[in-house]
Amino acid sequence: MTGKTKRNIIIAALVVAIGLAAYVATGSAQAPVTFKDIGYSTVDDTQAEVDYQVTKSPRATAKCAIKALDSKFAVVGWKVVEIAANEPQDDPDGGRTTVQRTTLRTESPSVSGVVDNCWIVDSGK
């Protein structure tokens, strides 16, 4: 192999490596599911309600972990809920975003409620 051929092979390998890195970086930057806390209310000493929105592919099924906290930030209520797949809609985001309300049982009075995490369980290929 000549020096020019080796150099061309190295340049081609670098271009492929950079392209692969860019593909991986942009693919992982787009989260399959996102969530946003909207509101919280205390029903009584044993129940709390958390309002939130979930954005995902309309045909995907997600699960979200919802928690209620007391004044010392201790978890006093916890629930995993399923956000079912739905048909795409004729709204600006195509039915990707849905608003949810989850009622939690609490072991003592709570002062806040939040979404801990959401994940996709079925992508609805």
Rank of each mutant, 00 (worst) to 15 (best):
T2Y: 05
T2V: 05
T2R: 07
G3N: 11
K4E: 15
K4R: 13
T5Y: 04
T5V: 15
T5R: 12
K6L: 15
R7M: 15
N8R: 10
N8E: 13
I9Y: 08
I9T: 04
I10G: 03
A12R: 05
A13Y: 04
L14Q: 01
L14M: 13
L14I: 15
A17M: 13
I18T: 11
I18K: 00
G19C: 09
G19N: 11
L20S: 11
A21N: 12
A22F: 11
A22C: 13
Y23F: 11
V24A: 12
V24N: 04
A25W: 11
T26L: 15
T26Q: 10
G27I: 00
G27A: 08
G27W: 07
A29K: 03
Q30S: 07
Q30W: 05
P32F: 00
V33L: 09
F35I: 01
K36Y: 09
D37S: 02
D37E: 13
D37V: 04
I38V: 14
I38A: 05
Y40L: 10
S41M: 10
S41H: 07
S41W: 06
S41L: 09
T42S: 14
T42E: 15
V43N: 06
V43L: 13
Q47I: 00
A48H: 03
A48C: 06
E49H: 01
V50F: 03
D51W: 05
Y52M: 05
Y52A: 01
Y52F: 15
Q53E: 15
Q53V: 04
V54S: 04
V54L: 15
T55V: 08
T55N: 09
K56G: 09
P58V: 00
R59Q: 14
R59L: 15
A60N: 07
A60D: 11
A60V: 09
A62R: 02
C64G: 02
A65P: 05
A65G: 02
K67N: 08
A68C: 11
A68V: 08
L69R: 06
L69G: 03
S71N: 14
S71T: 11
K72Q: 14
K72M: 12
K72R: 12
F73N: 13
A74Q: 14
V75F: 06
V75S: 07
V76Y: 01
G77Q: 08
W78N: 13
W78R: 06
K79F: 06
K79A: 09
V80C: 03
V81Y: 03
V81L: 07
V81Q: 08
I83M: 12
I83K: 02
A84W: 10
A84E: 15
N86H: 07
N86S: 10
E87F: 01
E87T: 08
Q89G: 09
D90I: 00
D91G: 01
D93G: 05
G94N: 03
G94Q: 04
G94F: 11
G95A: 05
G95Y: 01
G95E: 03
R96E: 14
R96G: 01
T97V: 10
T98H: 05
T98N: 11
V99P: 10
V99F: 08
T102L: 01
T102G: 02
T102Y: 02
T102S: 10
T103H: 01
L104K: 02
L104Q: 07
L104A: 07
T106P: 15
E107H: 00
E107Y: 02
E107P: 02
S108H: 02
P109C: 01
S110T: 05
